[in-house]
Structure formats: structure tokens, C-alpha cells
Amino acid sequence: MPDPTRTGQPGDDWREQVFAAFEQGGVELFCYLPDAGLDSFISRANAGNQDRAVVLTTEEEGVGICCGAWLGGKRAVLMIQSSGVGNCINTFSLVTNCRFPFFLLVSMRGEFGEGNPWQIPMGRTTQAMLELAGFQVFRASHPQDAVVMVTEGLKMAWRSDAPVAVLLSQRLIGAKDM
């Protein structure tokens, strides 16, 4: 769906395919904190069966809920902005210590075309922080990358009991034009 706050919209079909990859990958619960770059996925998660979408007050909660859902046998994913990755760092010890399968979708800020200096420190460090925390990180800069990375990232997370993050780069989702 069109997002007037974003420039360089590459069209919505890849977003549809990414969401389809979540559904085909068996994801039954979507935990999120809103971001313009995630808006389309949030809308889709909330459409129809509202029980599958959980809006969080802070990103850390989502780490707990996703791990808890897996303890109970359900696949959940966490969708957050890059700034929220910094909030999660300590909670990732739950993921790696207990060897939870974990899938994180991150919409990037603070990089390609960013106009807000407050976003830049986390934008610059998000990928390195995730890698230091034990995540396998895939960075998507083109629409088809995003679809393939989500599809394969979900498989990797659940087949290997691994933490996987897919970063949607600002090159892909566009910088906020304000």
C-alpha cells in the first residue's frame, strides 16, 4: 500500500510476497512496534485474524513473547525498527542461551538518505550489534532479496534453532521525506 511518508516506493508486490513467505513459513504470531517501513506487514498481520498481531510497548517484550510462543509450539516473528534493536540487546541472551529459533525483521533507519541525525548512531551499528549478539544477518537492498531472505531466513531459524535477522535497508524501503 502506498506510503506518502516514504520516497522511492518500489511498489507493493514484494511486500505482499514477503508477507506470503511468513504465512507459508508457518508464522502464526506477529509481534511489532510500528514503523513506516513495516506498515504494510503490520496491516496485513492485523487483517482478518486479529489474534495473530501483538503491538508491544517496547521491543524487549517481543523477544520474550516470541520465545514464549515457541515454548508453546507456535512460530512468532518480531518486527521492529533499527533503533529498537539497541533496546533488545540484553534480552537476546535468552535467545542464544536457550538456543531458541528466532526471526527478526528490521526496518532500517539512519543510513541511505537519512535526514534525522538521531537515527544515525543506531543505523550505523544495528547489523554489527546483531552479529555480536549471535544473529545471522541478511541485509535486503532489493525487493527480490527481501522475499528470498525472509523465506530462507525463516527456514534457517526453525531448522537450525538459530537467531536470524533480515534487515530491510533504507535503499529498499526509502528514506522518510521529512
Partner: peptide, 18 residues
């Protein structure tokens, strides 16, 4: 034994799953 503050969130995940 870590991740202070998340007991309620983990329990919420389990409760939703089952």
C-alpha cells in the same frame, strides 16, 4: 537466569500459543 523483566512476556507467549 537472565533477561530481567521478561517473565510476564514469556508467559504471555506461552499463553497465546496454548
Amino acid at each position: 537466569l537472565g533477561s530481567m523483566g521478561l517473565a510476564t512476556s514469556i508467559a504471555l507467549g506461552v499463553a497465546v500459543a496454548q
